[in-house]
Design a protein around this nucleic acid. Structure first.
Length: 779
DNA sequence: GCTGACTGCCTACCT
DNA sequence: ACAGGTAGGCAGTCAGCG
């Protein structure tokens, strides 16, 4: 029989006798299903040195591995190695161990031979080889099988190879989603799993169920058991939480281990386990961390669940309040406090669920596009998303997938940034080259397989010579990156065309909008990927050439604008800010299309725009009356709110009201409030991220010293955490006066510091352009 | 012993 | 753990200084 299913998760069955890939999903009728596929066996390729007789290799190989002839099968296959057609040996093994054993021995056994694709896991292999569509519909012939302990409605054995059903318009089935959140509290510092029991676990489902498993005493076994039972009973397809990968799951796993409780919430009965991209994986389900999704919203500076909820305006957003970790234990010991905590943990689960539902379309499209499962694609960094996407492309083209190997790293010259014309400019247009780097890579065929090594000879006419760096790339045939980028650009164009024809509210429009975003993200990351040492297709010269062509492009464009007498105010990488002169802009755009074969679009229009002397920092008034603030303190997460607010008001006064006087007045008022102790501590807090382990820091800086203090007090801190501190009165260096913000009282604040090093500099950065002196602020 | 110029570390930003 | 380019704060060093 045929089974058509929406693919949610893929893993390997380690308990099976032979290598088995398990596909988890939801079928046409809404049944949760598992398909066991044993058609595929682990394999790898051997690329022998050139001019070596393959037959003899094959025989030598089988002879030297006498004991394993039965376990390996060697066949010849035509593949490409960086575009070069090669006949290679495919070694199919009975298990992984054999893959590892043979692929390690082969270079010793056969001089000059190299192994490929031995690092690709079977589950990945399956998705690639059969072009499966995660978060999409797939089908295959199946035979019904015994459930064998799997927690699904139907288990099957695949009797044919699984294939994706290319019907991307099809909606996802109705999926069961569960949000959860953990409450912990400790008498001193952060709760530690080895010491402090779970206080409560809240779970909320998208079918309206809501449970909170409370543990009042020291023994949390019951709460853990009940939670695991509830998960299995509700049987979610998607599990979400906020920072659940980093905090909730590891804590639960550790407590379960201590209490000897099974957290067997996987659909195969397994426990959650840490997985490939530093996330926690639950077999057969997609466990997602909403914090990872929040990471894709750079406009949210401090990635808390509260901020994310407010930003997206999910329905429970206004109910959510912040309870400091500092206050939690005390609240837990009080009756009312405990009620509040329980309400809070429930709300967090609820908000996680709402946030996931509001944002999940994009990761789903990204999953379909890249071939990573939903949980993986959410957890994976950009580089690995591109990696996954192009591995599939490589396989489709018969190109061998190179390993991810360690290599030396050199930086190279990047983009050009222009010195801005300082001051206020009226009526300005920002012109952008659309997808400049990928377009240049495509146009000049920049690719590892077309790159002409300095030692190689090439006919002058047959190559592109890259300006400035002098690298050469063959014009023919199409390079690997060219085919990849072309495919991405074409797909995106197609999606855009279809979007035009759709109702904005239709489901398909929503899906395609996210699909277009996914295509855009992957396309634009190709340049960075090519220059990333971790990339499988890393060739520095490719990225370096793209950067050089970018500089050439923007330089030529500036010359052209000059010759058109179109004044340029500023420019960065692939954009130039010019006087909004539609006629001349039209001419420039036409020139770019004709001479450079690149598209320029008007990305922004500013009624007025203000530049300080610095690059990458400006503020513009948009036609709709809102300010677009770039690079300045207002948009930086490491300045106190009071300085950001004052600078924003200054910019508003100047750009919107055109009144320096109002700006100055506002600064004076703020200074007075500060001096009177009327500015709350929260607005004085400075946040900085810990970017490495404490012991790796070479200097003593405020946030590092505060982090040390917190660690000493027993708080749990990890790389990536934001340290919030306030500068207090006292003697010495700033790092000696910085204190954890939750522990500072109003009268301890070093008002002088906030005046001289926060508020005044932020305000003066703008005001000094208008001849305002610092003295005038004090009046 | 203090001051100011300068350097390097560090974070967060821009395209 | 996609790239390089840039701003700007703070700590620390060191020359110069009656």
């Amino acid at each position: 029989m045929k089974c058509r299913f929406f693919l949610l998760d893929v893993n390997e069955a380690h308990d099976a006798e032979k290598p088995t890939v398990r596909l988890w999903g939801v079928d046409d009728e809404g049944h949760r299903i598992a398909i066991l596929a044993t058609q595929i066996k682990p394999y790898f390729y051997i690329v022998p040195a050139k001019n070596v007789e393959l037959k003899s290799i094959r025989e030598r190989l089988l002879k030297s591995h006498g004991e394993s002839i039965e376990t390996a099968q060697v066949t010849e296959e035509g593949k490409k190695l960086l575009g070069q057609e090669r006949t290679v040996l495919k070694v199919t093994c009975s298990d992984y161990e054999a893959v590892n054993r043979y692929s390690r021995e082969i270079p010793r056994l056969l001089v000059g031979a190299q192994c490929y694709e031995q690092d690709i896991r079977l589950s990945v292999r399956y998705i690639i080889d059969y072009t499966l569509t995660p978060c999409g519909w797939n089908q295959c012939d199946v035979d019904e099988a015994d459930l064998g302990g799997l927690r699904v409605n139907r288990a099957y054995v695949a009797s044919s190879v699984v294939a994706s059903v290319r019907k991307e318009e099809d909606e996802a089935p109705k999926l069961r989603v569960m949000g959860f959140s953990l409450l912990t509290a400790s008498e001193r510092g952060s709760a530690k799993a080895e010491r402090d029991p779970v206080r409560a676990i809240a779970a909320v489902t998208n079918s309206g169920e809501s449970r909170t498993f409370v543990n009042e005493g020291d023994n949390d076994s019951a709460a853990l058991n009940e939670f695991a039972f509830f998960v299995n009973q509700f049987d979610p397809d998607i599990i979400v939480g906020f920072e659940n990968n980093r905090l909730d799951w590891p804590y639960l796993i550790e407590r379960a281990k201590l209490r000897n409780v099974r957290l067997n919430v996987g659909r195969d009965g397994s426990d959650p386990h840490s997985s490939l991209f530093g996330h926690v994986s639950v077999a057969g389900r997609a466990n997602l961390d909403v914090a990872d999704i929040a990471g894709g919203f750079p406009e949210i500076k401090v990635k808390t669940i509260e901020n994310f909820a407010k930003y997206l305006q999910v329905s429970s957003a206004r109910k959510i309040t912040t309870i400091e970790e500092f206050d939690r234990f005390k609240l837990w010991t009080e009756k009312l406090g405990r009620e509040r905590l329980l309400q809070d943990v429930h709300l967090r689960a609820q908000v996680s669920l709402e946030l996931a539902e509001a944002t999940i379309n994009f990761p789903m499209q990204l999953s379909t596009l890249t071939g990573l499962t939903l949980d993986q694609v959410v957890a994976a960094a950009v580089g690995f998303r591109v990696d996954s996407y192009i591995m599939r492309e490589a396989w489709l083209q018969g190109e061998l997938i190179p390993p991810r190997n360690e290599q030396p790293f050199f930086t190279y010259r990047g983009a050009i940034v222009l010195e801005p014309k300082t001051g206020v400019h009226e009526n300005v247009a920002v012109l952008d080259f659309t997808s400049m780097y990928p377009s240049l890579m495509e146009k000049y065929n920049l690719s590892p397989d077309t790159f002409v090594k300095p030692s190689e000879k090439a006919l002058e006419d047959s190559v592109f010579v890259i300006p400035d760096v002098g690298y050469k790339f063959r014009k023919k045939p199409d390079g690997f990156y060219r085919t990849v980028i072309r495919a991405l650009l074409t797909q995106r164009k197609k999606v855009k065309v279809e979007l035009e024809t759709l109702e904005e509210k239709s489901t398909r429009h929503k899906v395609l909008r996210e699909r277009e975003r996914a295509l855009k993200i992957i396309t634009n990351a190709c340049y960075g990927y090519a220059g990333w040492v971790g990339a499988r297709w890393y060739v520095r010269e490719v990225a370096e050439s793209a950067a050089a062509l970018g500089r050439d492009t923007i330089t030529k464009t500036i010359s052209k604008a000059d010759s058109l007498e179109l004044p340029i105010i500023y420019g960065d990488t692939d954009s130039i800010f010019v006087q909004n002169d539609p006629e001349k802009i039209k001419e420039l755009t036409a020139w770019a299309k004709r001479e450079l074969d690149l598209e320029i679009r008007v990305a922004h229009k500013y009624v007025r725009v203000l530049f300080t002397e610095a690059m990458k920092r400006y503020a513009g008034l948009q036609p709709d009356g809102t300010l677009d603030i770039v690079g300045l303190e207002v948009v930086r997460g490491d300045w106190s709110d009071i300085s950001r607010q004052v600078q924003e008001r200054v910019l508003e006064s100047i750009l919107l009201d055109r009144s320096t006087e109002n700006a100055v007045q506002h600064v004076r008022t703020t200074i007075r409030r500060l001096q009177n102790g009327e500015v709350p501590i929260a607005d004085l807090t400075i946040r900085k991220t810990l970017t490495k382990p404490i012991e790796d820091y070479q200097v003593r800086s405020p946030h590092v010293e505060v982090a040390k203090k917190l660690l000493k007090q027993g708080w749990y801190l990890a790389v990536g955490d934001k340290i919030s501190y306030v500068i207090t009165k006292g003697k010495g260096k700033l790092f000696e006066k910085a204190e954890p913000y939750a522990q500072v009282k109003q009268d301890q604040v070093d008002v002088e510091y906030y005046l001289e090093n926060q508020v005044k500099p932020a305000a003066m950065r703008i005001l000094e352009l208008f001849g305002v002196s610092e003295k005038q602020l004090a009046d």
